[in-house]
Amino acid sequence: MWRLRSRACWQEAAELLRPAAEVDPATALGRAELLIEQCLFTAAHWTAAEQALRLAEALATGPEERAAAACARGFLAYVASVLGSRDRLDEAQAALGRTSALLPPDAPGRPLLDFRRGLVAENLLRDRTAAWIAYRRAHEGAGERGDELLRSYTWRHLAALAQAAGDRDRAREGFDASLRLREQLGFTVGVAPALAALAEVSAPEEAARMRAEAARLVQALGGVPVWLARQLGAARAPGAPPDGRIGREAQGTIS
């Protein structure tokens, strides 16, 4: 399953999970998360993700299962707001607030919730201070639980905030850590965005090499992430939107 997911084969992985997902809440949620991740990288397949998430919500019974489904709902609303056709900020905030109410402070799902709250703060509310606080909590929690994939994301977003604040050294440290983790985990679909981010705070010659490698990976994976494919194909034009929306100004790091 990990091999398929890491190589952008979300639909194939989801099909393997379909039979068990019809009856098992944990599998249904895992399948929904897979298809939401597909939306994040492709800016498409919204209906499949929505249907899978509704099934996960219907099967959820206990507080932790309902919290996990609500957290996924908040993430789908966030991704749709950034890459889709309409603003779903209110839905994202309500779902993540519901998640927080259902989870005890030390619950295993807290780091992921904190990270997703950071995404909303950074990219929808444009509140970098709130985003930094949420990302730090997520980063520390992911470290305590050994969630290295989540740490690859928290490193990346903390680095992006450092870059926005003009701290190139800290930004480079974070982007480099994110890239190393993704390479170690074999999260192939996440390596190209990590390379492109690190290129932004690297010397010109090194940056050119990283962008070329990122472009090669995007092409090898069939053009995903689509927002990075557009960015790399835009001859590094200023303001090229990374989120798949023509004409929308790019701000922040979306994934």
Rank of each mutant, 00 (worst) to 15 (best):
L4V: 11
L4D: 13
L4N: 07
R5P: 00
R5M: 06
S6F: 13
S6M: 12
S6A: 15
S6G: 08
R7E: 14
R7H: 15
R7C: 06
A8M: 08
C9H: 11
W10M: 08
W10V: 03
W10P: 00
Q11K: 03
Q11Y: 00
A13S: 12
A13T: 00
A13M: 02
A14H: 03
E15K: 11
E15T: 02
E15F: 10
E15S: 04
E15Q: 13
E15H: 09
L16D: 10
L16Q: 12
L17D: 03
L17W: 02
L17S: 04
R18Y: 05
R18H: 09
R18E: 11
R18W: 08
P19G: 12
P19I: 14
P19H: 10
P19S: 11
P19Q: 12
A20K: 06
A20S: 13
A20N: 09
A21Q: 05
A21L: 05
A21R: 10
A21H: 10
E22N: 13
E22Q: 15
V23N: 13
V23F: 05
V23R: 14
V23H: 13
D24N: 14
P25H: 14
P25E: 10
A26D: 15
A26N: 14
A26M: 13
A26S: 15
T27N: 07
A28F: 00
A28R: 08
A28D: 08
L29R: 12
L29Q: 11
L29M: 08
L29V: 12
L29E: 12
R31I: 02
R31P: 10
R31Y: 06
R31H: 13
R31D: 01
R31C: 06
R31F: 05
A32G: 13
A32D: 04
E33V: 10
E33H: 05
L34T: 00
L34N: 03
L34F: 12
L34G: 06
I36R: 03
I36G: 03
E37N: 14
E37P: 09
Q38M: 00
Q38L: 05
C39T: 14
C39M: 10
L40I: 04
L40W: 03
F41W: 09
F41K: 09
T42H: 05
A43F: 06
A43L: 04
A43Q: 02
A43T: 04
A43M: 06
A44P: 03
A44S: 14
H45Y: 13
H45C: 14
W46L: 15
T47W: 07
T47R: 15
T47H: 14
T47F: 07
A48E: 11
A48C: 07
